[in-house]
Simulated scan of single mutants.
Amino acid sequence: MSHWSRIEVEAIVRTYFDMLNKELHGERVNKKEANRQLNRILTGRTLASIEFKHANMSAVLLDLGFPYVDGYKPRSNYQELLREVVEAHLALDKSLLVTVKNLVEQPALVAATDVDLELAFVPAPQRQPSTFHRTGRGERVNRPRLGVNYLEREANNASLGKAGEEFVLEVEHARLWKAGHRSLAERIEHVSQTQGDGLGYDVLSFEISGKERPIEVKTTRFGPLTPFYASNNEVNVSRLLDNYQLYRVFNYGKGPKVFVLPGLLDQSCTLEPTHYRALVG
């Protein structure tokens, strides 16, 4: 199959951003119909190749610090032309930037407290390859970002973080209560509030055996493959504490769900350096 032309890539990008805008505004997105319409325009491109290109779009947006269309699992080996067209679109689409900025900065409403455990917990996504790419000489370099990293800005939204922690408190209470361990359920502690945020985890819960379950909570309004940010302390604590768990809360505000990454963060995730401590003198 030949490389995608600029005209084809621009059609893909326009359709994807139309879906993303609708999703960010809480509107229903008919991905199959959008793909069928593209298939009529892009003669010679199969529905499968169009869906694959949308998955490439998701990877580009995550590299640039933007949310992606939920359901299009990011695929990182994308055409550089695709990234170029996406960046050009973002530079012109000021309304999209405002929409994303408002979403990642707005205060979070606390989720309803009636937790259905059958719906709350989902399997963790399969581990994804790093979004690093290789230059012609083979060395690994991080892809530059365009402007603001909105996903990092969302990660710094204290209101959203606290709301996610309170959701996990309810989830853990429901889990232990359902298992018949009500005394353990009543002992769950929101340690980031009672003891400060320097422990490396946010919630102290329990196994049904009574063993402690320290939980770090990371929350996003977007899809399950949205990257999260972990501090050096959190990574180190995951190595030191027995039974450490990271709860990734996603789709917050649209029906939050959570998956669990147990144990060492550098084993359950691909960790990429994003900050340096610089000492002068």
Rank of each mutant, 00 (worst) to 15 (best):
L119Y: 13
G71V: 12
E80K: 02
Y72V: 06
H89M: 09
P107Y: 08
H133I: 05
E84G: 01
A120D: 12
D93G: 12
N149L: 06
L146D: 07
F121M: 10
R145F: 07
V110S: 12
E154A: 05
K94N: 00
D70R: 12
G71H: 13
L117G: 07
H133K: 13
A91N: 13
E84P: 01
N102H: 15
A111D: 10
G71F: 10
V110Q: 04
T131L: 07
V86E: 03
E118C: 05
N102V: 05
K162R: 14
V115C: 09
K162N: 15
N156Y: 08
L119S: 11
G136Q: 01
R134F: 03
G138Q: 04
S95T: 08
Q126G: 08
R153N: 05
A112F: 00
L96Y: 05
H133F: 05
E152R: 15
E80P: 09
K162H: 15
V110G: 04
Q79F: 13
A111P: 09
L103S: 09
T99E: 15
A163N: 05
L96I: 08
L90Q: 14
L103R: 12
L151M: 04
G71K: 11
A91G: 11
E118Y: 02
G71E: 09
S159H: 04
N77F: 03
N77I: 00
E154H: 07
E118M: 05
S76F: 08
T99P: 14
A155R: 12
L151Y: 05
V141G: 08
P125W: 06
V148S: 03
T113L: 01
F121Q: 06
N149R: 00
A163G: 05
V98E: 15
P144M: 02
A155W: 02
R137K: 10
E118D: 13
K101S: 11
E105P: 07
V100D: 06
V110F: 10
V85A: 06
V148G: 03
E80M: 00
F132L: 08
V100T: 07
D93H: 02
R145L: 14
V110Y: 07
A155K: 02
S95C: 00
A155H: 15
R137P: 03
R143A: 05
Q126F: 11
T131Y: 07
N149Y: 01
N157H: 04
D114I: 01
D114V: 06
R127N: 09
Q79I: 11
R143C: 03
H133P: 02
L82D: 03
N102E: 14
H133C: 02
L96A: 11
P74R: 03
H89I: 08
A111C: 13
A88H: 12
L160K: 00
V148N: 03
E152H: 08
V141F: 08
N156D: 06
G138A: 05
H89D: 03
R134G: 07
